[in-house]
Amino acid sequence: MPRVTLISKPGCHLCDDARAIIARVTQDLGESFEELDILERPDLLERYAEEIPVTLVDGRQLDFWRVNEARLRAALSQPLR
């Protein structure tokens, strides 16, 4: 199961930036990530409509709008809880 989840939507340039950072970090660290389209998930749309892209690590929100690469690397260096 991927430790990182990116909640995004099509045509979102911030989502493109977040995806690139997440892909690089997860590849560097031997992790994987999944991406969920907020437009296909009413529950996510209700919760995160104004915050996308949203980055979750181990199911917890880490960042929104922009991904902080150092914070993502630090979160992934922690053991899975």
Score class of each variant (00 low, 15 high):
1 M>Q: 09
1 M>N: 08
2 P>W: 14
2 P>T: 08
2 P>N: 12
2 P>L: 11
3 R>A: 02
3 R>D: 01
5 T>S: 08
6 L>H: 03
6 L>Y: 08
7 I>T: 02
7 I>E: 06
8 S>M: 14
8 S>F: 13
9 K>Q: 14
9 K>L: 11
9 K>T: 03
9 K>D: 06
9 K>R: 15
10 P>K: 10
10 P>Q: 14
13 H>Q: 13
13 H>R: 12
14 L>E: 11
14 L>H: 10
14 L>K: 13
15 C>M: 12
15 C>N: 11
16 D>I: 09
16 D>M: 13
16 D>W: 12
17 D>A: 15
18 A>P: 07
18 A>D: 10
19 R>E: 08
19 R>S: 00
20 A>Q: 13
20 A>T: 14
20 A>E: 12
21 I>W: 09
22 I>H: 09
22 I>W: 10
22 I>C: 09
23 A>C: 02
24 R>Y: 07
24 R>K: 13
24 R>H: 08
25 V>N: 07
25 V>S: 08
25 V>I: 11
26 T>A: 02
26 T>W: 04
27 Q>M: 07
27 Q>K: 08
27 Q>E: 13
28 D>C: 05
28 D>E: 15
29 L>C: 02
30 G>A: 06
31 E>A: 04
32 S>T: 14
32 S>K: 09
32 S>C: 03
34 E>M: 14
34 E>C: 10
36 L>R: 15
36 L>H: 07
37 D>S: 06
37 D>E: 12
38 I>C: 09
38 I>T: 05
40 E>R: 15
41 R>G: 00
41 R>M: 03
42 P>C: 12
44 L>S: 06
45 L>M: 06
45 L>I: 00
46 E>P: 00
46 E>F: 05
47 R>A: 15
48 Y>E: 01
48 Y>Q: 08
49 A>H: 14
49 A>S: 14
50 E>L: 15
50 E>G: 00
51 E>K: 15
51 E>C: 10
51 E>L: 15
52 I>C: 09
53 P>Y: 07
53 P>Q: 10
54 V>I: 14
54 V>G: 06
54 V>P: 05
56 L>K: 09
57 V>T: 05
57 V>R: 03
57 V>P: 00
57 V>A: 01
58 D>I: 07
59 G>A: 07
61 Q>F: 05
62 L>C: 11
63 D>G: 03
63 D>V: 00
63 D>Q: 12
63 D>H: 15
63 D>N: 15
66 R>F: 15
67 V>Y: 01
69 E>Q: 11
69 E>K: 09
69 E>D: 06
71 R>I: 02
71 R>C: 04
72 L>G: 04
72 L>V: 04
73 R>D: 06
73 R>A: 09
74 A>I: 03
74 A>W: 03
74 A>H: 04
75 A>Q: 01
76 L>M: 03
76 L>F: 02
77 S>C: 01
78 Q>H: 13
78 Q>F: 06
78 Q>S: 07
78 Q>I: 06
78 Q>A: 12
78 Q>V: 12
80 L>I: 12
80 L>S: 10
81 R>S: 08
